[in-house]
C-alpha cells in the first residue's frame, strides 16, 4: 500500500476516485429510486459527444462534456413533458444520438486514439492536478445542493405528483436533479470511463437497497460501498495493470451479488 502512495499520480488517483465514489451514488440513488437508472448511461453517451467536440475544437473536454450533458438533460425533461414518447424510449434516442455524434466527431479529429481509450474506459492514473480540482469543486457544488434540497428531492423521488400537489416545485427540482446528474456524469467519466460511469452511479445504490434500510441510510451505505470499490479497484488495477474503471465496476458487481445473497438469507 505504501508503495502505491509513493507515486504522486496514485495519490491524485485516490483523491479523485474517492471524490467520485462519494458523488456518483449520491445522485445515483435518486435515479434508481425513480426508476431512472438508464438516465446515467444516456448522459454518459451524450457526454462522450461533448468530449469529442472538445478534442475537435481544442477546448477542455470536461467542459464540453458538461455542456453536452446539461443540454441533453434539458432535452430529456422537455421531451418527457411533451409526452412525445415513453421516457425510456426518449432516453434511448438521446443515447444513440450521442454515440453517433461522438463517433462522427472523433473520426473528424486526428491523433486522439489514446485519449479516446481513456474516455471510454477511464484512466484514473492520468488524472492531473487540474482534473482533481475540477472533480472536487464540482463535487462540492453537487453535494451541497443535494444536502440543502435533500427533503425536497426525497419527496419528489417518492412521488412526483403527490409532492407537486403538496406545493413542492417538483418540475424545477426534477430538472435540477437531472442537471446535477449531468454534471456528475461528466466529472465521473474522466475517472471511470464513459462506458462504465452509469455503473458506479447505479450498482452501489442497488446493492445498498438490498439491505432494506431507510432512504438516508441506503444513501450513506451506497456511498460507503462505492468508495470501498473505488479503493479496491485502484489498488488491484495498479498491481495487475488492468483498466481502473472496469476493475472498480467489477468490485461493485461483486458487492451487489453479496448483498443479493445476504438478503435472500
Amino acid at each position: 500500500m505504501l508503495s502505491i502512495l509513493s507515486y504522486d499520480f496514485m495519490i491524485r488517483a485516490f483523491a479523485a476516485g474517492i471524490a467520485v465514489g462519494i458523488l456518483a451514488p449520491s445522485i445515483g440513488l435518486f435515479l434508481v429510486a425513480r426508476r431512472y437508472s438508464f438516465m446515467a448511461d444516456t448522459l454518459a453517451h451524450v457526454s462522450l459527444a461533448g468530449v469529442a467536440a472538445g478534442y475537435l475544437i481544442g477546448i477542455d473536454p470536461i467542459l464540453t462534456a458538461i455542456c453536452a450533458s446539461l443540454l441533453s438533460a434539458g432535452s430529456v425533461e422537455w421531451l418527457r413533458r411533451s409526452g412525445s414518447a415513453p421516457s425510456e424510449a426518449l432516453l434511448s434516442v438521446l443515447l444513440y444520438g450521442g454515440l453517433a455524434i461522438a463517433a462522427v466527431l472523433l473520426s473528424l479529429s486526428h491523433g486522439t486514439n489514446v485519449s479516446l481509450s481513456a474516455v471510454l474506459f477511464g484512466s484514473i492514473a492520468t488524472v492531473t492536478k487540474k482534473d482533481l480540482a475540477v472533480v472536487i469543486i464540482l463535487g462540492i457544488c453537487v453535494l451541497s445542493t443535494l444536502i440543502i434540497l435533500y427533503k425536497e428531492f426525497f419527496a419528489m423521488t417518492l412521488d412526483e405528483e403527490l409532492s407537486a400537489t403538496g406545493g413542492i416545485p417538483s418540475r424545477a427540482l426534477n430538472v435540477l436533479l437531472v442537471m446535477l446528474a449531468a454534471v456528475t456524469v461528466a466529472v465521473t467519466m474522466r475517472i471511470i470511463g464513459a462506458l462504465l460511469v452509469g455503473a458506479l452511479m447505479v450498482i452501489p445504490a442497488l446493492a445498498a437497497m438490498q439491505l432494506r434500510l431507510s432512504f438516508l441510510r441506503t444513501l450513506l451505505v451506497s456511498i460507503a460501498f462505492s468508495v470501498l470499490c473505488v479503493i479496491l479497484g485502484l489498488i488491484v488495477s495498479f498491481y495487475i495493470g488492468t483498466a481502473s474503471g472496469g476493475t472498480i465496476v467489477l468490485f461493485a458487481l461483486g458487492l451487489f451479488l453479496l448483498c443479493v445473497i445476504a438478503r435472500r438469507r
Binding site: 427533503k151 426525497f154 419527496a155 417518492l158 409532492s163 413542492i168 437497497m209 431507510s214 432512504f215
Partner: peptide
C-alpha cells in the same frame, strides 16, 4: 422504494 414509514410520513411536511 428504499424508505421507512417514518421518512414517508415526515415528507408530508416538506412544503
Amino acid at each position: 422504494f428504499p424508505a421507512t414509514v417514518e421518512e414517508v410520513v415526515l415528507s408530508g411536511r416538506t412544503a
